[in-house]
Simulated scan of single mutants.
Amino acid sequence: MDTVLSITTTVDSAEAARQLAQELIRRRLAACVQVDEGVSSHYRWEGRDCLDAEWRLTVKTLPSCRAAVEAFFAAEHPYQLPQLLWLEMQASPAYAAWVRAQVGEAA
């Protein structure tokens, strides 16, 4: 199967993004984590309108690793209520094989 899972979340600093990305890779929960800076998030929290700079993490993993990645973020994410969005995507056979090799049985 050539399906990969893409999970996105945001954090409030480059350092938090770097730490989460490195730990996901180290634990072999993700094959790749892309970090986008310069995200402006407009939202309502606890009755207030908010605008904050954030860094977006896009985690590339396998569908079978979703629960483990969710558990990781539940323990390690700096936000009280982190955004966790996921989407199963079709990938090229070569890329999907690479993702499987990176997260494989170690996850």
Rank of each mutant, 00 (worst) to 15 (best):
D2C: 01
T3Y: 00
V4E: 00
L5Y: 01
L5P: 00
L5I: 01
L5A: 00
T8S: 08
T8P: 00
T9Y: 01
D12Y: 06
A14H: 06
A14S: 12
A17Y: 09
L20Q: 07
A21S: 14
Q22P: 09
Q22A: 09
E23Q: 07
E23Y: 02
L24C: 09
I25V: 15
I25L: 15
I25F: 10
R26A: 13
R26Q: 15
R28E: 12
L29F: 13
A30F: 05
V33Y: 07
Q34N: 15
D36P: 01
D36W: 04
E37R: 13
G38R: 06
S40P: 03
H42P: 06
H42S: 15
H42V: 11
E46C: 05
E46A: 12
E46W: 04
E46N: 12
G47D: 07
G47V: 11
R48V: 09
R48S: 14
R48Y: 04
D49Y: 09
D49V: 11
C50P: 03
C50D: 13
L51N: 14
L51H: 13
D52G: 06
A53Q: 14
E54C: 07
E54Q: 14
L57A: 07
L57W: 03
V59I: 10
K60L: 10
K60W: 07
T61A: 03
T61W: 05
T61E: 10
S64W: 06
C65F: 02
C65S: 14
C65P: 00
C65D: 09
R66Q: 15
A68I: 02
A68P: 03
V69K: 02
V69Q: 02
V69A: 04
E70G: 03
F72E: 06
F72N: 01
F73V: 02
F73N: 02
A74C: 05
E76L: 03
H77T: 05
H77G: 13
P78K: 09
P78T: 08
Y79Q: 15
Y79H: 14
Y79D: 11
L81R: 14
L81Q: 11
P82A: 10
Q83H: 05
L84R: 06
L85Y: 10
L85P: 03
L87D: 13
L87N: 11
L87S: 12
L87Y: 06
E88L: 05
M89G: 05
Q90F: 05
Q90D: 14
A91I: 08
S92E: 15
S92N: 06
S92Q: 09
A94D: 14
Y95D: 04
Y95H: 03
A96P: 02
A97P: 04
W98P: 01
W98N: 01
R100D: 05
A101Y: 08
A101F: 04
Q102I: 03
V103G: 01
V103R: 02
V103M: 04
G104L: 10
E105Y: 05
A107T: 06
A107I: 04
A107D: 03
